[in-house]
Design a protein around this nucleic acid. Structure first.
Length: 552
RNA sequence: UGGGGUGUCGCCAAGUGGCAAGGCAGCGGGUUUUGAUCCCGCCAUUCGCAGGUUCGAAUCCUGCCACCCCAGCCA
């Protein structure tokens, strides 16, 4: 996986900027508004910004773009920091806030007024929209556009002093109401909003807009490359306009890339909120959610998410990445780091008829990594195997247990099935088999080899566990396009197996510990619900399955 | 009908005038006490389309076509 060398337009651009000698080092930033939980799309942005800084020996800031207090809260500030750290990144210095630059921003607004580049406008929101024109028609100048510098200054200072009601006036840049770029039609710089701010309290009755704040925040922090998503492309002329018209300490540059879209997932906050509100999922960190907290609870390793973002690459073309690529990154990572263990998801009792005593087997924790050691697995006369691993009769392609045939118990002996019982419904309810002696770690003395290998757990020493099997939340490859999310839900996205049986060592699993349950998949001890008394595992992802037999 | 973008394999994506990387998916085969992993092989005479420039074009020019974004006192 040598993706480090892969080039993309951002690296190329930064390298050439560095080569031009105008910059001594790269500074990037991840600037979320603390108004919700981070999701996969944010993970992409985080990876892009932090990895770029790492690769070029620069720094990356974490800055909360908190210019709209009504939508924000401390809860998100805390959660976002936890998510960024969990992903494996540490921002340079202290956490930063746009709100700590409010005074500077205000002074700069005054500067624009003094230079005749900004004015206070009394138009209502509706009137302003009307004056703005349309995509194909030029806008008209506001009647307040010609106010004197002195009057603008007085009005703006009074706005700041809290003399006017919310929405009654705004401060606007004086640019061009006929610009084909609507962002340049006298954009709003400040609005009156007598709202309590999570950082600044009641100090400010006016708040700067994103457009007036973002570039200046970058300039204050010495950010060299302000990397954002494509929809801000039209804002770049405005971003540059402020940098040119203000005495800012540095000249950051905005570069846009295409946001990450992944098939069968959706990142619309509004729609995701519906799933939470209607209890389709158990919360923002439900293992099926595309939130960082959800991916975490699902058992996706942070390294896998980082690798996925790197492998997807960064470009400017809109795209939908196949979620199989994410799943591949997860399997790749987990194959390396997850110790192996056995769990029977759909238990079928099996009695070893030629054994009476229990035995303890030493089984490797990882087939390819001896340093992970071995563990003790109790082998007893009464076992459970998975119902899917036994058939009374089967064709040659079936490499599991069949009456009269042999199979190896993973990490243990080869057994041969003799007979089985049925329940009233005619289903197999119990299997009886014999150990072939001399097959522990050896091929059978008689030369008749086993058909395959199946996993098992001691019925007497094993523990009952709840296993939650997850599947994709949506049935549509592009659920984001659908207006009503309820119509594209996968009703089978969660299947609870309440009667699974796991080997004893798994009771000691720490919360968030991830194992491969051999032949099944990767499972994580639930962050909140798992305990040694009541083990609960979430299926992170199944093993790749290339067995083509349709009826399993 | 305005402005800004994007179009390279089923899905991502390198490529910046010298003769189409890589990953995912898929398909063959080998190893295997996980039908996993691992290993080996196959998978774009062609780069949205049509012209043009050039010894030579995915890369330059012209014209079309398709898709995405923009009319919040959201970010």
């Amino acid at each position: 996986m040598s993706t480090e060398a892969r080039s993309n337009f951002l690296k190329t651009q930064i390298q050439s900027d560095l080569d031009a000698g105008e910059l001594s080092h790269l500074v990037t930033r991840f600037p979320p508004e603390p108004n919700g939980f981070l999701h996969l799309g944010h993970a992409k942005s985080i990876t892009v910004n932090f990895e770029l800084a790492k690769q070029f020996g620069g720094r990356c800031h974490l800055r909360f773009d908190d210019t709209n207090p009504e939508k924000e809260s401390q809860i998100f500030i805390d959660a976002i920091q936890e998510d960024v750290r969990w992903l494996g990144y540490q921002w340079d210095g202290e956490v930063r806030y746009a709100s700590s630059y409010f005074q500077q921003l205000y002074d700069w607004a005054l500067h624009l007024i003094d230079e005749g580049n900004a004015y206070v406008c009394d138009l209502s929101a509706d009137e302003a929209r009307e004056y703005r024109g349309s995509l194909v028609e030029a806008g008209r100048d506001s009647p307040h556009r010609t106010r004197s510098v002195a009057e603008n200054r007085d009005l703006f200072e009074r706005m700041r002093a809290g003399e006017y009601p919310d929405g009654s006036r705004v401060l606007r840049a004086k640019i061009d109401m006929a610009s084909p770029n609507i962002n340049l039609r006298d954009p709003i710089l400040y609005r009156i909003r007598k709202a309590h701010h999570h950082q600044t309290g009641d100090a400010w009755p006016i708040y700067p807009t994103y457009d007036f704040a973002h570039g200046q925040e970058d300039a204050i922090e010495g950010v060299t490359h302000s990397i954002c998503t494509l929809e801000f492309e039209d804002h770049r002329p405005l971003y540059d306009w402020f940098i040119e018209h203000l005495p800012v300490p540095s000249r950051p540059r905005q570069i846009e890339f295409a946001r990450l879209n992944t098939s069968y997932t959706m990142t619309s906050k509004r729609k995701l909120k519906q799933l939470v509100d209607f209890e389709v999922v158990e919360g923002w960190d439900d293992p099926r959610m595309p939130t960082i907290a959800g991916l975490r609870r699902r058992g996706y390793p942070p390294a896998a998410i980082r690798h996925f973002c790197e492998e997807v690459g960064t470009s400017r073309s809109d795209s939908i990445v196949d979620v199989a690529m994410l799943e591949s990154a997860v399997r790749n990572q987990l194959n390396i780091e997850a110790p192996r263990a056995m769990a029977v998801l759909n238990p079928l009792p099996l009695t070893i008829t030629n054994r009476e005593a229990a035995e303890v087997l030493a089984v490797a924790n990882h087939p390819g990594d001896e340093s992970m050691g071995t563990r003790s697995v109790p082998f007893t006369p009464e076992l459970y195997i998975d119902a899917a691993d036994f058939r009374e009769e089967a064709n040659k392609k079936y490499k599991r247990l069949v009456i009269g045939k042999r199979v190896r118990l993973r990490g243990g002996y080869i057994i041969e099935a003799d007979r089985c019982d049925h329940n009233s419904a005619g289903e197999v309810s119990h299997v009886y088999a014999r150990v072939i002696e001399g097959t522990l770690g050896e091929d059978p003395p008689d030369g008749i080899k086993a058909k395959g290998v199946i996993h098992w757990v001691s019925a007497t020493a094993g523990l009952s566990a709840e296993i939650r099997c997850y599947d994709r939340l949506f049935t549509d490859p592009n659920p984001g396009k659908t207006e009503d999310v309820m119509t594209v839900l996968n009703s089978q996205s969660l299947v609870r197996l309440e009667h699974a049986v796991i080997e004893p060592v798994l009771a000691t699993a720490a919360a968030e510990a991830i194992y491969q349950f051999e032949r099944e998949g990767y499972f994580v001890a639930d962050r909140y619900d798992h305990s040694s008394d009541r083990p609960v595992f979430n299926m992170t992802i199944g093993l790749r399955d290339t067995w083509s037999d349709p009826h399993g």
